[in-house]
Design a protein around this nucleic acid. Structure first.
Lengths: 205, 205
DNA sequence: GTCTATAAGAAGATAGAC
DNA sequence: GTCTATCTTCTTATAGAC
């Protein structure tokens, strides 16, 4: 990794742990293994580093959202896949998605940074909500909606069903971000959640 | 309100909007209507202001948790009350609790401050989780558990049922903290959630 | 308790040699 | 591109008059 990218990487780590204002340029430089003034050959200011991180994050989020959309673009097929899934397989899929959010290093650090900075930056608040509320609700809404249309799940209110499916994942994610030690318990609870959801909405047990 | 309390009040507002590091002592003083040096007659440092806020918050949270516990202390009675509740009344109760969290000024500002500062202060992360994850799960768990024991709700897994009940409230709270304009929609969704929950777990419609 | 003036120090950023 | 030395600005905090 080049120096320029390493600066972004170390800065992101620090911003996600302490917030922008609590990170000093010298600190970033030190981690990269250079002195603070050298850093200014790569970025013209501390703010420019932050902006570059945000831009990189937007690109990644956009790409990930697009991939979800592509998958969601052939929804009949997706729903067909889900129809044939055993409950165990469904649990595995759900927990894999959760595990990815928690363990993908960039994703996790971006999210923690957004959590800290959201209240004094409207753009970041929107990014957070798109990524962790609206996009997932849309994606799972499409999928669960198709399963409902096919009679795999039974409901006359897909929006509410989707909220009930996704909200526990969201909550447990914020818990594990704060305290990674709670991950095993979170996984256990989410597994029970998926099985229970499956039962409640009428899939065979 | 005395000057000493007004300092805490204005500081809390600023900390909840920008985070500790982005707030300058002069800014707090200005809002109170005094100059920065005068502020040091009331608190010996910026950190002391922050600490006083956190202490006040702990006291409030403790008291509120105690009230929940007192209510939860006669759980048979509580469950009996819930048994006789109409669905409409249940919806109203749930949304009132939600509205309190959103609109009570101190609570809202404490929570936003905690959200910002949680990652570089373990004590604050714990306070957040107690207040917004563990206490509510315990409280609602007790209540829903009693309703299940009396056959008002039907489940063999109270913990999961409680997660499914509470998580949507939690998620919508974080949404409204970021963008208060979304509150009407959040309320609509939560109302649907409560009704659906009520149906799914077997209360009469 | 509030003010003005100011000290003390930290942190972002630049100059210029190598 | 990296360094040392330095500038500038901002911010916390204190001194001392009223």
């Amino acid at each position: 990794m080049g120096t320029k990218q390493r600066i972004l990487d170390e800065a992101l780590t620090l911003f996600s742990e302490k917030g922008y204002a609590n990170v000093f340029v010298g600190e970033i430089a030190q981690r990269v293994g250079i002195k603070a003034p050298s850093l200014y050959k790569h970025y013209k200011s501390k703010q420019a580093i932050f902006d570059a991180i945000v831009e990189e994050m937007h690109l990644r989020f956009l790409e990930q959202a697009k991939q979800l959309h592509i998958q969601g673009n052939n929804p009949a097929k997706d729903a067909e896949i889900y129809r044939s899934l055993s409950e165990d397989r469904l649990v595995k899929l759900g927990l894999e998605l959760f595990g990815y959010e928690l363990h993908d290093d960039y994703t996790r650090r971006f999210r923690k940074m957004l959590t800290i900075e959201q209240f004094h930056n409207r753009e970041l608040a929107e990014a957070y909500m798109n990524r962790y509320v609206d996009d997932p609700l849309r994606y799972h809404g499409t999928l669960l909606g198709l399963m409902a249309a096919q009679g795999i799940l039974q409901t006359d209110d897909v929006e509410t069903m989707t909220l009930q499916f996704y909200a526990p994942f969201y909550m447990m994610m914020t818990v594990c971000d704060r305290d990674p030690d709670r991950e095993p318990d979170a996984i256990r609870m989410l597994e029970n959640h998926i099985r229970q959801f499956n039962k409640l909405y009428g899939r065979s047990v």
